[in-house]
Lab assay of single mutants.
Amino acid sequence: MIQEPALPPGWEMKYTSEGVRYFVDHNTRTTTFKDPRPGFESGTKQGSPGAYDR
């Protein structure tokens, strides 16, 4: 089984109701579709995929 590298501290991976993966940075309280791990580009969309909830 291939294991992906861990997200940076304070980051979480979530999915929209449509199943699109996005990332929550709890450090800055922002969201992005761009994977924060080096070498992982998950898309070019920018903006908030939804309300920030902790």
Score class of each variant (00 low, 15 high):
Val20Gln: 12
Ala6Pro: 07
Thr32Asp: 01
Pro9Lys: 15
Arg29Gly: 06
Arg29Asp: 02
Tyr15Ser: 08
Arg37Ala: 04
Phe33Ala: 03
Pro38Thr: 05
Tyr22Ala: 01
Thr30Pro: 00
His26Tyr: 03
Met13Leu: 08
Pro5Lys: 15
Lys45Met: 14
Phe40Asp: 14
Gln46Pro: 06
Ile2Arg: 08
Glu18Arg: 05
Ser42His: 06
Phe40Gly: 14
Phe23Lys: 01
Arg29Phe: 06
Pro49Asp: 14
Tyr22Arg: 01
Tyr15Thr: 13
Arg37Met: 04
Gln3Asp: 15
Thr30Leu: 07
Arg21His: 11
Thr32Leu: 00
Arg21Ser: 07
Ile2Asn: 15
Phe33Arg: 04
Gly39Tyr: 09
Phe40Ser: 12
Lys34Gly: 07
Pro36Ser: 00
Phe40Thr: 14
Asn27Gly: 06
Gly47Val: 13
Ile2Ser: 08
Glu18Gly: 08
Thr44Gln: 08
Arg54Lys: 12
Arg29Val: 03
Tyr52Met: 14
Arg29Glu: 07
Gly19Asp: 04
Lys34Gln: 09
Pro5Arg: 15
Ala51Thr: 13
Lys14Phe: 13
Val20Leu: 09
Arg21Met: 11
Asp35Leu: 04
Val24Gln: 08
Phe33Gly: 02
Lys34Thr: 09
Gln46Asn: 15
Ala6Leu: 13
His26Asn: 05
Glu12Tyr: 03
Lys45Ser: 13
Arg21Val: 08
Arg29Ser: 05
Tyr52Cys: 13
Pro8Lys: 06
Ala51Met: 14
Lys14Asp: 12
Gly43Val: 08
Phe33Pro: 01
Met1Ala: 08
Thr30Arg: 05
Arg37Tyr: 03
Pro36Phe: 00
Pro36Met: 01
Pro49Gly: 12
Glu4Gln: 06
His26Pro: 02
Ser17Ile: 06
Lys34Asp: 07
Thr16Met: 03
Pro9Gln: 14
Ala6Tyr: 13
Gly39Pro: 13
Tyr15Leu: 11
Arg29Asn: 05
Pro8Glu: 06
Arg21Gly: 07
Thr31Trp: 02
Gly10Ser: 06
Met1Asn: 15
Thr16Ser: 08
Lys45Gly: 10
Leu7Pro: 03
Thr31Pro: 00
Pro5Thr: 14
Ser42Pro: 13
Met1Lys: 15
Arg29Pro: 02
Arg21Trp: 03
Gly47Leu: 10
Arg54His: 15
Pro8Met: 06
Lys14Gly: 04
Arg21Tyr: 02
Pro36Ile: 02
Arg21Thr: 12
Thr28Arg: 03
Thr32Ala: 01
Pro8Cys: 02
Lys45Ile: 07
Lys14Gln: 12
Trp11Pro: 01
Gly19Ile: 00
Thr31Lys: 03
Lys34Arg: 09
Ala6Gly: 12
Pro38Val: 14
Gly39Lys: 15
Leu7Thr: 03
Leu7His: 01
Lys14Trp: 12
Glu12Pro: 00
Pro49Met: 12
Asp35Ser: 03
Gly10Leu: 06
Ser48Pro: 12
Gly43Asn: 13
Asp35Ile: 10
Thr16Glu: 01
Gly19Arg: 07
Thr44Cys: 13
Glu12Lys: 02
Gly47His: 08
Pro8Val: 01
Lys14Ala: 14
Lys45Asp: 12
Gln46Val: 09
Ala6Arg: 15
Ser17Arg: 07
Pro38Glu: 13
Pro9His: 14
Thr31Ile: 01
Leu7Asn: 03
Gly50Gln: 07
Pro8Gln: 04
Ala6Met: 09
Thr32Glu: 00
Arg37Gly: 05
Glu4Asn: 12
Pro5Met: 15
Met13Asn: 04
Phe23Leu: 00
Leu7Asp: 02
Glu18Val: 06
Phe40Arg: 11
Thr30Phe: 05
Pro49Leu: 10
Asp53Gly: 07
Thr28Val: 02
Asp35Gly: 03
Ser48Glu: 14
Tyr15Trp: 10
Gln3Ile: 15
Glu41Asn: 08
Pro9Met: 15
Ser17Gly: 11
Gly47Lys: 14
Glu12Ala: 07
Asp25Ala: 01
Arg37Thr: 09
Phe23Val: 00
Ser48Val: 11
Glu18Ile: 04
Gln3Ser: 13
Ser42Glu: 14
Thr31Asp: 01
Asn27Trp: 02
Asp35Asn: 04
Ser42Gly: 12
Glu18Phe: 05
Met1Asp: 07
Pro38Gly: 12
Asp25Gln: 02
Gln46Arg: 12
Gly19Asn: 04
Thr31Ser: 05
Thr16Asp: 08
Arg29Ile: 02
Val24Ala: 08
Lys14Arg: 11
Leu7Val: 04
Asp25Ser: 01
Pro5Gly: 15
Pro9Trp: 08
Glu12Asn: 04
Leu7Ala: 03
Met1Ser: 09
Gly10Thr: 02
Gly10Lys: 11
Thr30Trp: 02
Asp53Ile: 05
Ser48Leu: 10
Gln46Cys: 10
Val24Thr: 05
Gly19Pro: 00
Pro38Phe: 09
Met13His: 05
Phe40Val: 13
Phe40His: 11
Asn27Met: 06
Pro5Leu: 14
Ala6Phe: 13
Arg29Ala: 07
Asp53Lys: 14
Asn27Ala: 05
Arg29Lys: 10
Lys14Thr: 08
Asp53Leu: 07
Pro9Ser: 13
Thr31Glu: 05
Gly50Glu: 14
Val20Asp: 15
Gln3Cys: 15
Lys45Val: 07
Gly43Glu: 10
Met13Arg: 09
Trp11Ile: 06
Lys34Leu: 07
Ser48Trp: 07
Thr16Trp: 00
Tyr15Lys: 12
Gly43Ser: 12
Thr44Lys: 15
Asp25Gly: 00
Pro5Glu: 15
Gly39Arg: 14
Lys14Tyr: 07
Asp53Gln: 11
Ala51Pro: 08
Tyr22Gly: 00
Met1Val: 08
Ile2Leu: 06
Gly50Lys: 13
Pro5Cys: 14
Pro36Lys: 00
Glu18Gln: 12
Thr16Ala: 01
Pro36Cys: 00
Gln3His: 08
